[in-house]
Structures are given as C-alpha cells and as structure tokens.
C-alpha cells in the first residue's frame, strides 16, 4: 500500500483507468480505483478519468451510481473544497453538455459546451501538442515552457473564463480549466511522460497530506 494522501479514482468501468491510478501512485498518492461512497468521502482528492464517447461515459457514470457523487464533489471543489481533477472526457463532463451527445447533459459545474473539432485538421486530434499556459496555475508549476502533452479527442470545450491553458490545433482549443480547487485537463497527464507526471505530482501536492 502506498503512503501518501488517499486519491479516489472514480471507477465506472470504462477504458483504461489503471494508467491514471498507476501514475498517481508513482507521484506519491495512495490512489485507489473505487465506486464506493465511503471510500470516496474519505479521500483527500478525487480524480475523474474518462475515455471514449461523452454520452457513453455519462451513461456509465450513472450506471455506477456515481453521477451525483461526482457532481457534488466537483461543485465542492469549485467552491474551494476538496481538490478534484477531471481528465479528458472526465474534464468534458464538467461542462453543460457536448455536441457529441446532444441528448445528454453534463455535470454542469463549468459553464459552456464541448464542440466538435473543425477546420483544416484531422479529427480526432491524436498526437502530442504544446500547451500554451494562459494562467500560471499551480497545476503547471515547474513545467518547461511550452510543455508537450498527449491529446486524444474529437471534441473540445469552448475556451472560456475558466480556461487556464490552450493548445493550437487549427485554432486554440481548451486544454485545461480551473475553478477554485476544481481542475480539468483535456490531455492525458498519465500518458504524457515525465511532464505529464509532473502535473499529477502538482495535483497530489495540493492535497492535505501531500508534500
């Protein structure tokens, strides 16, 4: 068992959740995959990963009984409570909704919609890209200038007041958002080598009991 702050990685049965858990463990967290309310309540921080389709992820979250838990935790974090990090579709779900599933409503914690990537670029964006950090956020502390991160997504959140980083892909796309202690990243920090691990390390450091 890893020492360090307990991080609940919300387990709702989709895709590759294990990578996020392993990467958080590497950065000193006691990260556990769970859908258990008691354990989630106990955790010092929450991570909501997500891969695949927006509608399918919301459905799976619902089937696991995690929709309300995730929304409450995200609202609390946005108000300065317990830190919360959404990754990829886990970030997109924080918004009001997505063009990918017009019938599904997101968690609605950050205003705005997720829209199809358009323009003279291939869709999905499946590559490493450079971050343009628009706000010197604590999540990006110690990163090299223009840090490269791995992106896989066909839809992107609108750039808005909560945006703290973008990446250039046809036009600037929203790469990270922050409100209070709620963060969302469109890229996969758990798959972005050393620089990605640094982002997760910064998240772990923000937790009570983190270094």
């Amino acid at each position: 068992m890893t020492e360090g702050p307990l991080v609940a990685v919300l387990d709702y049965g989709i895709g590759n959740l294990r990578s996020a858990q392993k990467a958080l463990q590497r950065m000193g967290a006691n990260a556990t995959l769970t859908a258990d309310r008691g354990l989630i309540d106990e955790a010092a921080g929450i991570v909501l990963p997500g891969v695949g389709a927006f509608g399918r992820c919301l459905e799976a979250l619902d089937e696991s009984g995690l929709t309300d838990i995730a929304r409450e935790a995200a609202v609390d974090a946005a108000a300065g409570g317990r830190p919360f990090l959404g990754i990829c579709v886990g970030m997109q779900m924080l918004f009001d909704g997505s063009d990918e599933a017009s019938g599904s409503r997101g968690l609605g914690v950050i205003e705005g919609r997720v829209r199809r990537i358009t323009g003279d670029v291939k869709c999905p964006q499946m590559q490493w890209n450079r971050l343009d950090i628009t706000d010197g956020d604590a999540l990006f502390a110690g990163l090299p200038d223009a840090a490269w991160m791995y992106f896989v997504h066909g839809y992107a959140a609108q750039v808005g007041p909560a945006t703290v980083a973008t990446c250039e892909y046809g036009k600037p796309l929203c790469a990270a958002v922050r409100r209070g202690n709620l963060w969302g990243v469109q890229f996969h920090p758990e798959k972005s080598g050393r620089t990605g691990l640094k982002v997760l390390g910064n998240f772990v450091d923000s937790l009570p009991g983190g270094s």
């Binding site: 989709i14 895709g15 891969v51 695949g52 389709a53 999905p124 499946m126 896989v152 066909g154």
Partner: peptide, 8 residues
C-alpha cells in the same frame, strides 16, 4: 468503437 471509443 461503440464499447471503448474510436480512439481505442
């Protein structure tokens, strides 16, 4: 694709 998403 339906189960895991096209990116997989």
């Amino acid at each position: 694709a339906a189960e895991f998403g096209e990116q997989c």
